[in-house]
Design a protein around this nucleic acid. Structure first.
Lengths: 81, 81
DNA sequence: GCGCTCGTAGATCAAATCGGTATTGGTCCC
DNA sequence: GGGACCAATACCGATTTGATCTACGAGCGC
């Protein structure tokens, strides 16, 4: 698990779409999709339900989102530069 | 910044030596030294004072250590698997 | 039904990152 | 001076990451 994966995950959760999240993060969509899949594989949990319109958070995803946000906020506070 | 760098940093802080920390983390010494340097470069802060006997935490390093530990603990709680 | 759009996923390739080995330089102790 | 210990550098190979191209599926207007 990497901080990048956490950032990608939060972005997708907020945007409801990998495409939009990717634009927001200045990366392209396929790498972001792969990282999400890798994160789910590592956690052995389904974070999103894939739907035609985009991605919808699962129950576990919702729980994970809070923790991820907490961590990322702490990490950001680590570099006050 | 990466979680690996935070883990390396905490290990070195605990061991007082890159060599011992590297053994503990099952990596070799040079990569760990490099990651530490990269972390300091990114933070633009001296985390350790280099001494003949090993590494001694700086004042900023001590502050950073607490935050890093907090983050790593949260990250570990993320994967209860 | 036929395009068109929007969205995700897979394949492939190039670039960057990471770790390992070998080596150097410095300090301490005998 | 020689050996032990430690960090830093140089270099190389393997892994990972991201970009591009492409395929596939679902909705929408005609």
């Amino acid at each position: 698990m990497s901080l990048t994966q956490l950032r990608y995950f939060v972005a997708v959760a907020e945007e409801g779409s990998v495409s939009r999240a990717a634009q927001k993060c200045f990366v392209s969509q396929p790498p972001m999709s792969r990282q999400l899949r890798a994160l789910e594989d590592e956690l052995e949990v389904t974070l999103f339900h894939r739907e035609p319109r985009g991605m919808r958070l699962s129950l576990e995803g919702t729980r994970f989102l809070e923790k991820a946000r907490t961590i990322l906020k702490l990490v950001d506070d680590l570099t006050p530069a």
